[in-house]
Write a protein that binds this DNA or RNA. Structure first.
Length: 277
DNA sequence: TGAGTATGTTCAG
DNA sequence: TGAACCTACTCAT
């Protein structure tokens, strides 16, 4: 479920597992030949920017991971003296702490869009291409506002543009616009600065909850009627995402699915009217 | 068993 | 704008 909160959570966990010692890096699938460059190196720490994850190694090298639509990490905790489980399926990269006295963590990466060794200077390049990240305490939301307020593109598209805001995906996009009663098709130039600030502040809070819990929770307690998610038991509990055809939790009108810039958008036309209330 | 779907990005045309 | 990438899950047959 890779939106920005997932990557920040992974960065935090991988730092806990591996920072401060050498790691073993392999590519059971064989598609990450550069693993030999970092295998056995000292793992400094892990960071995340938007939907990008970096493993920083001594000597100015980093492994850059982007999970794309399907990618994910499996984690194994192996008791002292035991061998890690054989990789199952297509494991692009396996990282394991070098043997110590205690249990050893292994993480298996599957299905990423990107997994490559780069120089630290290129990490800066990636960061520079991205808009401010709500999960970065030093982020400057003014950079995002400057782009939004002079754009004719719909706010629903701008929020998902990683050059405008880093880390927001389809779920947070849909949910935050609902929570603020904003029509996703309204042009960025017609969003007020007050509305944008409220969206930013809400994203900071919602995504921090996501990092803590590992799941996207956007529904206020007074709107939680205990109904079953649309598909699968682990679907996020929320207002509009993947609830098309269902009653809106607030107004009881129907949640609508539309395509916006080639991505599915979920919204409530009644609660998110064309003209601001 | 197989089709359809998915929280994303990049590249060709 | 559409295809490609790539993996797991759900649902229909």
């Amino acid at each position: 479920m890779p939106e920005g909160h997932t990557l920040h959570r992974l960065a935090r966990l991988h730092s806990e597992y591996f920072a401060g010692g050498p790691v073993r890096v392999s590519s059971p699938q064989g598609r990450f030949a550069d693993h030999v460059v970092v295998d056995g190196r000292h793992f400094d720490h892990a960071t995340a920017v938007g939907k990008h994850l970096f493993h920083h190694y001594e000597g100015g090298l980093a492994v850059h991971v982007h999970l794309g639509l399907y990618g994910f990490f499996d984690t194994h905790l192996v008791p002292p003296g035991e061998e890690p489980p054989a990789p199952v399926g297509q494991v692009r990269m396996r990282v394991g702490a070098a043997a110590g006295d205690g249990p050893v963590y292994y993480v298996d990466l599957r299905g990423p869009t990107r997994c490559e060794v780069i120089a630290e200077a290129e990490v800066v390049d990636v960061r520079d291409r991205l808009g401010p990240d709500p999960l970065d305490p030093d982020a400057d939301p003014g950079r995002a506002w400057a782009r939004i307020t002079r754009s004719a593109r719909p706010i629903g598209a701008l929020l998902m543009d990683q050059k405008v805001l880093a880390g927001v995906g389809n779920v947070y996009r849909a949910e935050v616009l609902f929570r603020h009663g904003i029509d996703p098709f309204r042009a960025g130039s017609r969003v007020t600065e007050g509305e944008f600030r409220a969206i930013w502040d809400d994203l900071v809070q919602l995504m921090e909850v996501g990092v803590e819990t590992g799941a996207i929770h956007t529904i206020r307690p007074e709107h939680d009627h205990g109904d079953v998610p649309r598909r699968g038991a682990d679907r996020p509990r929320n207002y509009v995402y993947q609830r098309d055809g269902w009653q809106c939790r607030v107004c009881r009108d129907e949640i609508v699915l539309q395509t916006l810039e080639a991505r599915t958008l979920f919204w409530c036309p009644t609660c998110q009217p064309e003209r601001p209330r």
